[in-house]
Structures are given as structure tokens and as C-alpha cells.
């Protein structure tokens, strides 16, 4: 039983790290830009698909992991500068409609380019297979994923707390008008924020590909989870999104031990409890 619990904790951590990455990305966009990014899931899918193609063309998995999120950033830049920017003053309904339209378009483009059938992206030989930790056997790639995602989250945290741009982003979440007053070019800040959010979504997608494979609908599958992370965390809280993401991953892991049928439901139970007992979210201030 102990080894089962430990392995479930590892599983939950791996999953939770992915949720945290996409969740933080969405939180940034939601918090700074104040738009409901329904295209977030499809950026995640795009990250996975681009990584697949890059890995196949260049033969390098690591290069794919490096390049594909950056290409997703490019797509994010296009979305922001060509569409979203014109909608900052519109109501949320139009923003939502537009972003969902973009999600539909990108998802269908994925089907047109890569076909409707899913793919596998294999981890490189150095990362595939399982390691014997003494008390349990665990896939190498998952261990690396946990460490790497943790490293990325630490980097992100340092970026947000120790750099000027990070400070501006955080200020943007707290009070957008203040940023304008300070004479900072808001358009640039928004563009970078959207790009950073897209980067995190794309990265999570690329990292998840060797575990979960690729399908055109993967973006739609992850989207509700992103929003639950945001609700549980409290809108606009970055540490909240990290912790909520990991918590949700862990509780899914726990659910599989005792109620395997309920692994999806547990997410929404957590959210329901949050809404009832702490409506502003675990770390929410607003």
C-alpha cells in the first residue's frame, strides 16, 4: 500500500505540474488582460503538435521541446495583435466569442494539417523506459517531467518577482489603470503577457505529448481543467494557480486509489467545495 501511495503521489505531481503550467498561463492572461482565453486549450494542443513535427523532422526531442513553445508564442502574438487587442474595450461576450472562434479555427487547422487521427511522440531513448527506485519502478520520463516542470515554475516565479517586467505584470493584475498611469506602454505589456501565457500552454502541451499522445481534441479536454484551476486558485493569483494545479493533480491521483471512476468528478468536487467555503478562491483577494 505504501508504494502505491508513493507512486500515486508521483503521478499526481506529474499531472499537477502540467495543470499548474497551463493554469498559470491562463491566470496571467485572465489577470493582466482581463479576457476569458478560451483559446488556451488549443494553444496547448498546438504546442504538442508542433513538438511532434519538429521532433520528427530534426530528430531531436530536446530541440522540439525548446522550439515548439516559442512557435506557439508566435501564434499567441498574432492572436493578440490581430484580434484580441481590438476587443479590450468590448464586453467579455465578444472576447469569448472571438477566442472561441480562434479555438475552432486552430483546431480545424490542426486536423487539416496533421489529420484527424492521433499520434504518439516518443521520449528520446535516454528518457524512455523505467527506473527502479528501490521501492518502486517508475517511468524515467515522468520523473524528468516533474523535475523540469518544477524548475520552470521556479524560473517563472523568479521572473515575476525579481525582474522589472515581472513586476509590471504583477502590477497589471493588481491594478491595470495604475500601469497606464506610470507611463508604461500597455499594448506591449499585454502582448508579452499573452505571449508568456501561450508559451506556458505550449510548453505544457509539448511536455504532455509523450505521456498522453496527441489528438486534435486534446485542447478541448484540457480547457475546463484550466478554468477549474483558476477558480480554485482565486482569479489572478499566480502562486494560487501553481498550488491549485498541483492539488488537483494530487487529488486525482488519490481518487484513483479509492474511487477510480471518480477521477474526473473529483476536480469538480474540489471546485464546489472551494466555491462554498471560500468563494474568492484559495488565494484570491478580489
Amino acid at each position: 500500500m505504501t508504494f502505491l501511495i508513493i507512486s500515486q503521489i508521483l503521478n499526481g505531481l506529474g499531472l499537477g505540474m502540467l495543470y499548474a503550467l497551463v493554469g498559470v498561463g491562463l491566470t496571467l492572461i485572465l489577470g493582466v488582460l482581463n479576457i476569458p482565453n478560451f483559446a488556451h486549450g488549443v494553444l496547448y494542443a498546438l504546442g504538442a503538435y508542433l513538438a511532434f513535427t519538429i521532433a520528427n523532422v530534426t530528430g531531436s526531442f530536446y530541440f522540439a521541446m525548446f522550439l515548439s513553445p516559442l512557435l506557439v508564442v508566435l501564434v499567441g502574438f498574432i492572436l493578440e495583435s490581430q484580434g484580441v487587442r481590438r476587443l479590450y474595450h468590448a464586453h467579455h461576450d465578444y472576447q469569448l466569442l472571438f477566442l472561441f472562434a480562434c479555438a475552432l479555427i486552430i483546431q480545424e487547422i490542426i486536423i487539416i494539417i496533421w489529420g484527424p487521427i492521433g499520434f504518439s511522440l516518443l521520449a528520446p531513448p535516454s528518457l524512455s523506459g523505467a527506473v527502479d527506485l528501490g521501492f518502486l519502478i517508475y517511468p524515467k520520463y515522468r520523473l524528468v517531467l516533474i523535475c523540469f516542470a518544477f524548475f520552470m515554475i521556479v524560473c517563472l516565479y523568479l521572473f515575476l518577482t525579481k525582474t522589472n517586467l515581472g513586476a509590471i505584470l504583477r502590477a497589471g493584475i493588481e491594478n491595470r489603470d495604475m500601469v497606464k498611469v506610470l507611463g508604461i506602454n500597455v499594448n506591449v505589456v499585454f502582448l508579452y503577457t499573452f505571449g508568456l501565457g501561450a508559451y506556458l500552454a505550449g510548453l505544457a502541451g509539448a511536455l504532455s505529448a509523450p505521456i498522453m499522445g496527441l489528438t486534435p481534441s486534446m485542447g478541448l479536454d484540457i480547457l475546463p481543467i484550466c478554468f477549474v484551476v483558476v477558480v480554485v486558485a482565486g482569479l489572478g493569483s499566480i502562486p494560487g494557480a501553481i498550488i491549485a494545479g498541483i492539488l488537483i493533480g494530487l487529488s486525482q491521483g488519490a481518487a484513483t486509489i479509492w474511487f477510480p471512476e471518480a477521477t474526473n468528478v473529483v476536480i469538480y468536487v474540489m471546485m464546489g467545495l472551494t466555491i462554498i467555503f471560500r468563494p474568492q478562491g484559495l488565494f484570491g483577494v478580489r
Binding site: F3, L4, S7, Q8, N11, G14, L15, L136, I137, P139, R142, I211, M212, G213, D221, Q252, G253, T256, I257, P260, E261, T263, N264
Partner: peptide
Amino acid sequence: VDRHPLGHREYSTFITKAMS
């Protein structure tokens, strides 16, 4: 026997359980 939801993508937990 382990039942999982339709559309499930994450089987590590079931696999460790099964292997035990």
C-alpha cells in the same frame, strides 16, 4: 478490475495498482 472514465488519458495510477 479498475474502471476509468471515458476519455481518460492518464493511466499511471491504474498501472501501478495493476502491477502490484
